[in-house]
């Protein structure tokens, strides 16, 4: 038995996979001697050298574009985008080439590109270092999106990303980096985790609660409170948003008749809006109450701690939402 933080899980997975596959290279700002803004690549430069751990200038657009070119010509690049907000600078190669390459050029154009990026609010970094812009890329066919909530899932989902042949956006919530988990197996032994397969975290028939990434940790706190009150929730950790395991959510909603979705991002055009639409399309006959979306408001993310805390959905919000939707 051994405990690992989310950061250690990422780092050890990168290391294990780089030993396994020489085609994997890392690219990003300050990922070399510094070890990455959140320490996820610490020590890897020493182990693999500057040809495979490439510390880049601040050029998100061309680094992601170059990684796309390298991916299409025999390497497996992993780009660290320090803050997800900076992904706005790299949208063209992702949206217009990496995501479309296989559809347009066929299997000759494999693009095994992984973009790791730190998302999420909660650390007071302000409006341009805290966003979760997942919905932007959920809208683009051809990009897989992983949003793990635990070290174990981070290991499994990252392994799958590194062994696949399609571009993957890999979300690492900043508040998760320090969270620890007791691993049942050594990192090298943990199996790749399939995409499009949600994890049912707790079983219950009163209400379905869907979350992913950091929101799942808040949902666990909500569950602790609700279970003391005798309310049993079916908690689903989506784990990947593209592909999205709609079937597991539909099955759950058919049993519970109630759905709460916890999505950290702004409300309009969000991942939660997509989930709500899918559930309404496929399970509206089973809904006993309107779908409840817990999201951030449609505002930039404030820096002050009380403002930021109010901006993010929390466990308390989830408890209230479940009370309302179940009438208890």
């Amino acid at each position: 038995m051994t405990t690992r933080s989310f950061t250690e899980a990422i780092r050890e997975t990168l290391e294990a996979e780089m030993r396994r596959d020489r085609r994997i290279i890392l690219m990003g700002e300050d990922i070399g001697a510094y070890g990455g803004a959140f320490g996820a690549t610490r020590g890897l430069l020493d182990r693999f050298g500057p040809e495979r751990v490439i510390n880049t200038p601040i050029s998100e657009l061309s680094v992601v574009g170059a990684a796309t070119g390298a991916a299409m010509t025999g390497l497996r690049p992993v780009v660290e985008i320090m803050f997800m907000d900076f992904l706005t600078l790299a949208m063209d190669p992702l949206v217009n080439l990496a995501a479309k390459a296989r559809y347009l050029f066929g299997d000759q154009a494999r693009c095994p590109l992984v973009i790791r990026t730190a998302c999420g609010a909660g650390r007071g970094y302000g409006a341009t270092h805290s966003q979760t812009l997942t919905a932007w890329l959920l809208h683009v066919p051809g990009i897989r999106i992983a949003a793990p909530s635990t070290p174990t899932d981070a290991i499994g989902l990252l392994k799958t990303a590194l062994r696949g042949n399609d571009p993957v956006l890999f979300l690492e919530h900043k508040l998760l980096y320090g969270t620890r988990e007791e691993l049942t197996l050594p990192v090298a032994k943990i199996r790749p985790c399939p995409y499009g397969k949600a994890r049912v975290v707790t079983a219950g028939n009163d209400c379905t609660l869907v979350a992913w990434s950091w929101m799942l940790q808040e949902a666990l706190r909500a569950h602790a409170i609700l279970s003391q009150q005798g309310i049993r929730i079916d908690m689903i950790d989506l784990r990947t948003l593209a592909p999205m395991d709609v079937a597991t959510m539909v099955e759950s909603v058919r049993r519970t008749g109630r759905l709460v979705i916890a999505d950290e991002a702004c409300r309009s055009g969000s991942v939660s809006a997509e989930i709500a639409a899918r559930i309404f399309e496929q399970a509206h006959d089973y809904l006993d109450a309107p779908i409840c979306r817990l999201t951030a408001p449609d505002t930039p993310i404030p820096a002050a701690s009380n403002l930021e805390a109010g901006w993010m959905p929390s466990a308390a919000d989830m408890v209230r939402a479940v009370h309302t939707i179940t009438g208890r």
Binding site: G69, L75, D92, P93, L97
Partner: peptide, 27 residues
């Protein structure tokens, strides 16, 4: 031939990455 491209300039980083790939793979 890694493709023509409808985005003006988009081939620039792709060629750069191809050069990187050649160098890293020692090809």
């Amino acid at each position: 031939f890694l493709g023509s491209n409808g985005i003006t300039g988009a081939g620039l980083p792709v060629a750069t990455g191809t050069g990187l790939s050649l160098k890293v793979r020692k090809a």
